[in-house]
């Protein structure tokens, strides 16, 4: 999604070949959160070092021929066969590995966002597997035979909304780094990138939020109006009426959450005239501030209304709405990809 800015200055044939190549690869490797690597979808080529190694073998062979030295012949053949064996080994290393996207991270624009893949190896080890994106660095992990391990890909959230890597390159150069075997996984599940939080300047904004918050402050201050109920698991300790607990030994919660008019609303309309993205950033900052203070709050966006609540899940859903506000659902859904495994 995010990397449509592929070099435009490249000549048209190159571009055309690149497109055809990508199209071909995409047909071979459909969008899926799980991918089993096998001969059909593994590519293998020598690395730059592998090419130099090939050159070295030629030089060694020439030395052997010119000095008529059998042992140099022998070593040349040995290293040549080792190179072929390494080809087999490198391929086998990736082949049989299965990657499943098990957790998609979240974060703000500019932060590094993790994609956690679970790798399951078959009877052979998958060593030094490198997950990478064109724009982000690689991590190196090992999955030993018959075991599973989590491989984490960190990618940078460039803009708010869904973050769905076009192709995650899965590569291995084990054992000697002379050959690289690679494939791609094209996940379906997108990460969410929240707008960057920007604290709105104080005092400028006179809105319904203020009107209602004065109302709320009364109700919070006057604890008599609050509903009391017994303590339930998950209640915040600040809400426990400790004085009452000291008197009677009962854990009682002052529950003003359900009350009308008491929560504070965060409103998209609160910042008239401000750019959409900046508004969202303001709202994100406010959501995080409230959430940190463990206040209850609701969120109103054009066409979207999240009832006041508090807690991490609530915060997450508010941030999520802010992240994807005004964006179409993930783009791959429109594309014509074939039936997937999972």
């Amino acid at each position: 999604m995010a990397h449509s800015n592929r070099s435009n200055e490249v000549g048209i044939p190159v571009q055309w070949i690149g497109q055809r190549w990508r199209g071909w690869v995409d047909r071979r490797i459909p969008r899926s959160d799980a991918q089993q690597f096998m001969q059909r979808n593994i590519f293998i080529l020598p690395t730059a070092m592998g090419l130099v190694f090939g050159l070295l073998l030629v030089v060694m062979l020439l030395t052997g021929i010119n000095y008529q030295n059998s042992l140099i012949y022998l070593m040349t053949f040995l290293l040549g066969v080792v190179f072929v064996a390494a080809m087999h080994q490198t391929h086998k290393n990736l082949s049989g590995l299965k990657l499943t996207l098990v957790q998609v991270g979240d974060g703000h624009v500019g932060e590094r966002i993790p994609f956690v893949f679970r790798g399951a190896a078959d009877a052979s080890d998958a060593i030094a597997i490198r997950l990478s994106l064109p724009e982000s660095g690689a991590t190196l992990s090992h999955v030993l035979a018959h075991e599973t391990a989590d491989l984490v890909l960190m990618t940078k959230g460039e803009r708010r909304g869904y973050l769905l890597p076009e192709r995650v390159r899965v590569e291995t150069r084990f054992p000697f780094g002379l050959l690289k075997a690679w494939s791609w996984i094209r996940p379906v599940s997108a990460a969410i990138v929240y707008p960057k939080p920007i604290t709105p300047p104080e005092g400028h904004w006179l809105t319904a939020d203020d009107a209602e918050s004065s109302d709320a402050s009364v109700s919070v201050a006057g604890q008599d109006q609050a509903e009391f109920r017994p303590w339930r698991q998950g209640d915040l300790s600040q809400r426990v009426q400790w004085k009452r607990y000291a008197r009677s030994g009962e854990m009682v919660i002052a529950d003003w959450e359900g009350e009308q008019g008491s929560p504070s609303w965060l409103d998209f309309e609160a910042f008239p005239g401000v750019d959409l993205e900046l508004r969202l950033s303001y709202l994100v900052a406010q959501v995080m501030e409230r959430s940190k203070a463990q206040d209850s709050f609701g969120l109103r966006l054009p066409g979207i209304r999240i009832e006041p609540d508090c807690g991490p899940a609530h915060t997450a859903s508010c941030l999520r709405e802010l992240a994807v506000f005004g964006l179409p659902t993930t783009q791959w859904m429109g594309s014509k990809s074939r039936d997937n495994a999972l």
Partner: peptide, 23 residues
């Protein structure tokens, strides 16, 4: 790896044509 490749190395050693020195 070495064990598996040894027979091939031996065969190559036996059959690879020994050229005259080039220079």
């Amino acid at each position: 790896m070495f064990l598996k490749s040894l027979p091939i190395v031996v065969l190559l050693f036996l059959f690879f044509p020994r050229l005259e020195p080039l220079w």
